[in-house]
Design a protein around this nucleic acid. Sequence first.
DNA 1: TTTGAATATTCCTTTACAGGAATATTCCTT
DNA 2: AAGGAATATTCCTGTAAAGGAATATTCAAA
Lengths: 108, 108
Amino acid sequence: MNGQIFSALAEPNRLDIIDLLLKGALPVGDIAKKLDLNQPQTSKHLRVLCDAGLVEVQPIANRRIYKIRPEPFHELDRWLDSYRRLWEDRMDRLDDYLNVLQGKKPLN
Amino acid sequence: MNGQIFSALAEPNRLDIIDLLLKGALPVGDIAKKLDLNQPQTSKHLRVLCDAGLVEVQPIANRRIYKIRPEPFHELDRWLDSYRRLWEDRMDRLDDYLNVLQGKKPLN
DNA sequence: TTTGAATATTCCTTTACAGGAATATTCCTT
DNA sequence: AAGGAATATTCCTGTAAAGGAATATTCAAA
C-alpha cells in the first residue's frame, strides 16, 4: 500500500477536493470557488494530489480540468480487501497470544 | 469521511504497524522489535492510532496488547463505495464541462 | 517493599508542510 | 503585439509533528 495516498488525503481541503471531483471533473477556479479556497492554495493542493496520482489534468484552452484517477482507489480497495478476509477469519489472535504468555508457543 | 484516519495512516511506520496488527494482536515490545522501532516512538505511534480509533488496547499483566478496530475500516469501505458507484456511472463529466465552455449550460 | 520488565510521557530539536502575498506563466482574444 | 483571464510558482512565516534521549509509570515477582 502506497502511503503517499494517505498523506495526500490527510489534508482536509484535499479530501474535500477529492470528494468534490467525485461528482465530476472541474477546472481550478471552480474548485476554489466551491470550496472557498484561494486559487494558489488550490493549485498547490492539486499539485500534491497529482503527484500522488489521485488526480490528472486535462488542459482545455486557458483552463486545466482536474479529474480523479481510479487506480489509487482500486489500490485502496485491494488493501481493504486483505483486511476484510483477515477480519472474518478472526484476525485478533488474542487467544494465540495468551498461549504465548503461558509458554505454550514460542514468540518469533 | 473522517480525515483523522488518513492522517494516522499517512505516517509510514504507523501504516506498517497497522499492516502488522492485521495479522494479529501484539504487545508494544513485539511491534517495536518486528518493525525495528524504538519503544517510545512505538508507543507514541500507537497513541495516535488509538486516538484515531484505528486500534484499541487490552492490558494483560505488564503488557498492553494492541489490536485493530474494524469500524474505521468499514468507514473507509463505505467511502470507497460512493466512489465506486460514481465511477461506473461515468463520473468524469468532462463532456458536460465542454458544453459549459460552449455556453450550452450554466455553471452552478 | 524493593527490583526489574514493559510501557507511557516529557522535553528538546529538527523538519515538513500549510497558508498568505506577490509574481510568473500560459494562452485566448482583440 | 498587447491585454487579460486562468493557473502555477516562489518566498516567507508559523505551526504541527516525528525522532532521540531521558524519565515516569505500572505491575509482577521475589
